[in-house]
Every structure is written in structure tokens, then in C-alpha cells.
């Protein structure tokens, strides 16, 4: 009888305890787990360091030479970019245009990915101490990665593009008509995917002639024109007025090691930027 009472009491505690504890200590939990989250990533860095350390001098010299060539090319691009930015700022000043929304870019290492039937998230090694805030856009060389959904001091959780909770306004390349994109998860042994709705009925897509979906300026946190994915088929939706279809996302989305977080530029930084001429990262 006593055992049954203990069991019932513990079951009752199970029902109420975890929710209450997490409600009051949610932040503490996040900070507690952050170092555990980071550990595999740090170990990976260490492993990479030692694997590079074991390279021969000849291999290092060759790698250094290749890097020097790349650096020279990138330096040229940086100076071109800086010149174009200055020109743009001058035009904005002359025509009194409102300045494009600008972002600072923060490069972050991916520490953990959780792609389950319920959620599609990744944890990155940058947090509020680096200026990351909830809602910031996360991108990589191939396009969009997702949006920051939670931030702790040193880590941030990114809701991936394939997540059902991820929804944004977009448009097709070469077209201005807005459509709605939403993540659709990932089937086992398949690449992540999404779906597009509210597509004008005059558009059509096929595997041979896919339509490229890119971000719209209506999306708010995302710069215009970043690649979301390719639409390979469009079917008429239930309203018979619009079309809807499946969006094939990039396969490397679930194998990323580094991403870039676009943090909002603070008003005082924005004022300083034209005078400084540089310092503000990716513009739209």
C-alpha cells in the first residue's frame, strides 16, 4: 500500500514538477547545457588541429601558397565591394533614399543538429554576447539556413528552413509576385523539403525546368534574393485560384559546419557606418 502511495506521489510530481521547474529555471537549464552542447564541436576543432599538425612541411607550404592566391583574389573583391558600397551610399545621399536595411555578419560554428519527426533545429556556437538575437536570419553560401529561435549567452538555436515552424514570404527568380514558403520536414533517407503556396496560376514548373525560389524583401529579417530552393512541380490548390508545390532544398543543409548569422545593425552603428565607409557587413 505504501509503495503504491509513493508511486502515485511520484507520478503526480511527474505531472506538475517538470513544467514548474522548467518554467522558473528555463534560462538556467540552457546555460547549464550549453557547455555540454559545445563540447563535441570543441573536440572536433581539436581533432582537426592535430590532424593538420601531423601534415608534412611540404603539404603546409603548398596549402599556404594556395591560400595566398585565394587571399589576393578576395582582397581584390573586398576593395571592389567597398567601392560599390561607397557609390551606393553616395547615390542614397544624393537622391535622399532611405538606406537599405543592413546587417552585421557573425560567422558561427554548428555544434549540434537535431532533425527529428517533431523538430528541425541546429545549435550554433554564438550567443547574445556576440550580438545574436531571436529572429536573426541565418544563411550560408548556398542560401538560407533558418532563423534564430532561442539565444543563450554563448549558443543560439536555429529553426531550420525545413522546419514546419518556418514560414516566410518569397518570390520566384525573375518574378515579383509574392508567394508563401513553409518548411515541410524531412522523410527518412531523403533531403529536407518545403512547400510553396499562393503561387499565381500562370506559372508552371517541372523537373527539367525548375523555378528557383528566393527571399523577398517582404520577409523582413532576410535580405532580398537569397536562394531558398527549387520548385519542381506545381499543382492547383483547393481554392482553384492559386497553385502549390514542393520545394526541394539544398542537400547540404543537413551537413553544414559553419553558418553566418545576420544580426541587425543598431541605429548608432548605422549612423557611424557611412562615415566609417566600412564595418557594416552584408547589405541587401
Amino acid at each position: 500500500m505504501q509503495s503504491v502511495a509513493v508511486f502515485a506521489a511520484l507520478l503526480f510530481l511527474c505531472l506538475l514538477g517538470p513544467g514548474a521547474v522548467r518554467h522558473f529555471t528555463g534560462g538556467l537549464f540552457e546555460e547549464f547545457r550549453a557547455p555540454i552542447d559545445e563540447l563535441p564541436s570543441r573536440l572536433y576543432d581539436l581533432e582537426k588541429f592535430w590532424s593538420l599538425h601531423s601534415n608534412s612541411k611540404r603539404a603546409l607550404i603548398e596549402a599556404g601558397r594556395d591560400l595566398a592566391r585565394l587571399n589576393a583574389a578576395y582582397e581584390l573583391k573586398v576593395s571592389e565591394n567597398s567601392s560599390l558600397k561607397d557609390t551606393l551610399l553616395r547615390y542614397e545621399a544624393i537622391f535622399n533614399f532611405p538606406s537599405h536595411e543592413k546587417f552585421n555578419s557573425v560567422v558561427a560554428r554548428v555544434v549540434r543538429r537535431d532533425l527529428s519527426a517533431w523538430w528541425q533545429q541546429m545549435t550554433v556556437r554564438r550567443g547574445s554576447l556576440d550580438g545574436v538575437a531571436v529572429g536573426d536570419a541565418v544563411v550560408y553560401a548556398g542560401g538560407i539556413v533558418g532563423r534564430v529561435s532561442e539565444v543563450s549567452l554563448n549558443t543560439a538555436v536555429v529553426e531550420l528552413l525545413s522546419s514546419r515552424k518556418f514560414r516566410l514570404a518569397a518570390h520566384f527568380e525573375g518574378s515579383d509576385e509574392p508567394v508563401i514558403y513553409q518548411g515541410a520536414g524531412a522523410l527518412s533517407f531523403h533531403d529536407p523539403c518545403g512547400e510553396v503556396s499562393d503561387v499565381p496560376s500562370n506559372l508552371s514548373a517541372s523537373a527539367a525546368r525548375p523555378l528557383r525560389l528566393v527571399t523577398s524583401s517582404l520577409a523582413g529579417t532576410f535580405p532580398e534574393g537569397l536562394v531558398i530552393g527549387d520548385v519542381v512541380s506545381l499543382n492547383t490548390d483547393s481554392s482553384a485560384l492559386f497553385k502549390e508545390g514542393k520545394v526541394v532544398l539544398r542537400a547540404d543543409l543537413s551537413a553544414l559546419r559553419e553558418v553566418v548569422i545576420l544580426t541587425k545593425v543598431l541605429p548608432e552603428e548605422q549612423e557611424d557606418a557611412p562615415r566609417a565607409g566600412s564595418g557594416v557587413g552584408e547589405g541587401s
Binding site: L11, C14, G17, P18, G19, V21, F32, D37, D114, V157
Partner: peptide, 23 residues
């Protein structure tokens, strides 16, 4: 609790299942 701290669920939705199973 540690296991659940790793899950992106809030307000003990999964806690019931996990800890009931644990018991």
C-alpha cells in the same frame, strides 16, 4: 531532466512521458 533540457520542448510536454516511463 538533463535529457529533456536537450529537447526543444517547453513546459514539460515530454516530461510526463519521459518521467512516467522512468518511474
Amino acid at each position: 531532466y538533463m535529457f529533456e533540457a536537450f529537447l526543444p520542448v517547453r513546459d514539460g510536454i515530454a516530461a510526463f512521458g519521459l518521467l512516467a516511463g522512468a518511474l
